[in-house]
Write a protein that binds this DNA or RNA. Sequence first.
RNA 1: GCCUCGGUGGCGGAAUUGGUAGACGCGCUGGACUUAAAAUCCAGUGGUUGUAUAAACCGUGCCGGUUCGAUUCCGGCCCGAGGCACCA
Length: 946
Amino acid sequence: MKKYDYKKVEKKWQKFWEKNKPFRAEDGNKKEKYYYLVEFPYPSGEGLHVGHVRSYTALDIMARKKRIQGFNVLYPIGWDAFGLPAENYAIKTGKHPKKVTEENVKVYKNQIQSLGISFDWDREINTTDPEYYKWTQWIFLQLYKKGLAYKKKMPINWCPSCKIGLANEEVVDGKCERCDAEAEKKEMEQWMLKITEYADRLIEDLETVDYLDKIKTQQINWIGRSEGSDIDFEVKDFDDRIKVFTTRPDTLFGATFMVLSPEHELVNKITTSKQEKEVIKYQEQAGKKSDLERTELQKEKTGVFTGAYAINPVNKKKIPIWIADYVLASYGYGAIMAVPAHDQRDFEFANKYKLEIEQVISPMFIDDINPPQEGFDEVCRDTVLAFVRDKKTKKYALLDWHGTLDGITTTVMGGIDDGEDPEKAARKELAEEAGLENVTLIKKSNWITEAKYCASHKKENRHAKAHAFLFEVENLDKQKEIPEKEQKIHTLYWVKEDEVEGKLVPPHQKFVWQQILEETALTQGGHLMNSGKYDGMNVGECIENITKWLDKQNLGKKATNYHLRDWVFSRQHYWGEPIPMVYCEVCGWVPLKEEDLPLELPMVEKYLPTDTGESPLASIEDWVKTTCPKCKGKARRETDTMPNWAGSSWYFLRYIDPKNTEQFADMDKLKYWTPVDLYNGGMEHTTLHLLYSRFWHKFLYDQGLVPTSEPYQRRVSHGMILAPDNQKMSKSRGNVINPDEIVNEYGADTLRIYEMFMGPYDQPVSWDTNGLRGVKKFLDKVWASRDKQNKQDSKEVVALLHKTIQKVTEDIDKMHFNTAVSAMMIFVNKIQETGCTKETFEKFIILLSPFAPHLAEELFSALGEKGSVAEQSWPSFDKSKVASEQIEIPVQVNGKIRDKLSVSADISEAELKKLALDSEKVQKFLEGKKPKKVIYVKGRLLSIVV
RNA sequence: GCCUCGGUGGCGGAAUUGGUAGACGCGCUGGACUUAAAAUCCAGUGGUUGUAUAAACCGUGCCGGUUCGAUUCCGGCCCGAGGCACCA
């Protein structure tokens, strides 16, 4: 028999596909559509990565299967070709980025085609094509017209060595990606997109889509919405007010000073002449610091007093105003009210500069235990046990409280427990004391011991939890009773599930909390104290009431803040889409007319940015000089270009109608194809690309330009492929696996299946060349199996075939490719042994065809069939055929397997029981006793309890 | 510090409405074929004990719980990976 010549066969079918275009998606088709999308690659000089192969193959398998199942599938590809590497290469070599990009695209295209990925090449797009970026510019103009694009002076990352503005992504560890010089901050006018206007919808609409949970949470965290209040503070002796944002308006009575960021606009105005020198010096220092330094130096807070005072609106107290760089200019209003007792950062700052600390929240609260709370055991209501550990001696003691909790009587019970595991001892103690079956001590921290137990009653099987926060206990070693005054027990409350609310019980609170405040701020909830009429309220109530009051006084109102910032849309680079705006001395910023798009990138001589930090375009005088579209007067073009997130924010729409010259895509076609049913991409794009494109899409939706408010129905993410040494593949490490070499040595089908078989699709895996050989062996076995034809299939083979069909079909849908491959291996191992009919084998080939399309096509035609595997229909399975007649039932005695009985599948329970009890092996373990209970799980197992 | 995910043989991993833990593949060991090697094929392969083709015990990060039965459910802890991070 001839050996399978993968090189020849793969070429043959690739040519066939190129010529016959069986993977073309058809517009206006009556069939149900399916849109699969992979992130289009940046065609770098390094060529395709094995990571690309993993995701392209995975979706290729799904697309091929869906086509065989009769769907109209759109699976397109294109090139995200604007970007820095091409420009850097141009700077080095003088070769035009366009040229470089063209060459790289060619390489990529060849590589992808050599893998047999079923992309619809008729829809290939390229973001650097003027016919494409015409529409990127057009969308920008729409954003501008709706007020969502604006120009703003803001600090950008600046590389003093390259003399160029850097995008955040180009700053790695605070350094310039290209030259390793430390990046600085520089104020520059930048185009911004108001993504923050969509922040709420970007969170809320996540509920309507099917993304992996980790993607959703990452997006939510990135947007970082927090609810709170804006509060105005009057500045003493000035008419100005300082506005702050806080999530804890309840702590307002504890606001003992204010802190402004060094960049705050009021700083210079309010600073007293006495403090002026110091303040200016501090501002200068802060300005010089890069982001890196600011965050690195977070251990020690620094700041300067301005000499000015503000008035706390609730108690009219005069509080000092400081500046410090731990307050960020870019979040909220760049100013805070400092509540040192209840905020860790303010606490540290206050301690350092000896500022007043006023406690206004008492975390001491306790539930009313009488009458009993629903869900709590009697025992749990009046017994709490926890540990205390002596700070000096590091020894443990047990504490036990009895009686009602507001008149706590405390006795030291277990005494010092030297050496013995305190957890175990405590558990034992409590178990005995409280008559509980078991008790688990849950948490203990350094010198504050936090204990929590969960207990359950044997009979009722109910759970109850309690917390006991304990301080070190003095005179522990003497084991004497601790006088009530000296008890440093400060918190004790019952919790039901996650609820942490209760009523205030105030004994010893001052004493206790002064102790703890020496070390840390009290950031947890509790009840108000030292807060006038709000005393005794819990945090939630207080926030509600105090906000109402502030609103009435016109001093504050509810507010929401986000970590998400507006999108900096300007880049001082050449190789990007020109921003279609001109600056007219008379009219200001004026957009180009839509009919003048695209605004094409002009040819330049030098790609290096100018000394002023402007893009290379700025040096092309005759391009920059233009006339104002509005007044026809003198005007200058914007020389910044768009970031490369621009073209990728809407590319999936262009695939739908790639050649349309009238609009970015036709509405009817959009209605048919959107949304993308499945979008695959890396986790690294979760917070940038994915968020940006959702934002653009929502904007287009609001303008009535697309039919859906979300672009992607489902988003999945592939795990990274690591090098055999478990490291990230990188040129510098020299551990990169080149897919071309693998295709050459093992064939594309082997590479495809290997990458699917390596491990779960969504998890990282490391490369193992030996695994590749195993897959090759499997495909050779498949090829050899075509000679093992029988006239009839055994029942066993029929059952296995149906099982395999079911497994493969379901696993592809679930993206469990590794187990699908495993199922096919099992099938082939079987028919290698026994052979099968031609019909059975052909069904198997169809199952295999999405994974190994070349081999499948070749086998299909070698079996004398005409046409392509892709034109067949997907095999169906019959569950009734999967079940075999003889089954093996394990028999357990007291939970351990003692025997296995081979019986017919339809055996009755009584019969099986008899068989089992008669079994010698089972008898042995019954030891003559009578079984208490016999449990039969149909078709699975029999369990005997003695 | 916060958020998310994970921890199963020598390795990648399989098994979840709780029901035979280790499928499939790699590697390793032994054998067949060969002058030899590669390739291929056959057998074995979690650990300990063992009368070693019988059988028993242990075993899914750790400690407990629920259950006839837990990798799976519950409580806590430890370790690892990723993301965010002076966000008021």
